[in-house]
């Protein structure tokens, strides 16, 4: 179960089907966590780990190669991680260019903020999205490396 490439016992078809379908809904949960994050429980980090857990299930159920064949988008994980980090850094440090301390908000505290339901559109949202992307990317990279059989690493 742990290193699927080497194992002969594959999980039953039920697990495999669910695993393959789960990343989609997990994104939905993540979106909810980010959107509600400022008012209720949740933030970009938890959202990222939840999506990564869904991806981890795919790896466990299908094995490394099959998982990456089933979800070809996974190979963009490094870009996701770096992009997320840059987004988070940019949203944190852009106030320096305006002569304000880092991690200041736009719109500033007390000013009017556009709201869509509970979702408030202001710069910390970008920060949360950046963290989310980074966490998903980093954990997917880690899963990718650990899912490879040991022999392949030496080649």
């Amino acid at each position: 179960m742990v290193s699927p490439g080497e194992s002969d016992e594959t999980p039953d078809s039920m697990v495999r089907v669910v695993a393959r379908r789960l990343p989609g809904p997990s994104l939905m949960v993540a979106a909810a966590l980010i959107a509600k994050g400022y008012a209720e429980v949740g933030d970009g980090f938890a959202a990222g780990v939840i999506v990564a857990l869904a991806i981890a299930l795919v790896y466990v159920a299908l094995g490394g190669e099959a998982a990456e064949a089933a979800l070809p988008l996974l190979r963009h994980a490094p870009k996701l991680a770096v992009g997320g980090l840059l987004l988070a850094l940019a949203s944190g440090f852009f106030p320096l260019a305006l002569g304000e301390p880092p991690v200041s908000h736009r719109p500033a505290p007390g000013e009017h903020v556009v709201k869509i339901g509970v979702l408030e559109l202001f710069t910390p949202l970008l920060f949360d999205i950046g963290v989310f992307l980074l966490v998903v990317g980093v954990l997917t990279i880690l899963l990718h490396h650990l899912a490879r059989p040991r022999g392949e690493a030496r080649r």
Partner: peptide
């Protein structure tokens, strides 16, 4: 800071 959740 436009937040309801202290930890976030």
């Amino acid at each position: 800071a436009h937040g309801g959740d202290v930890v976030t």
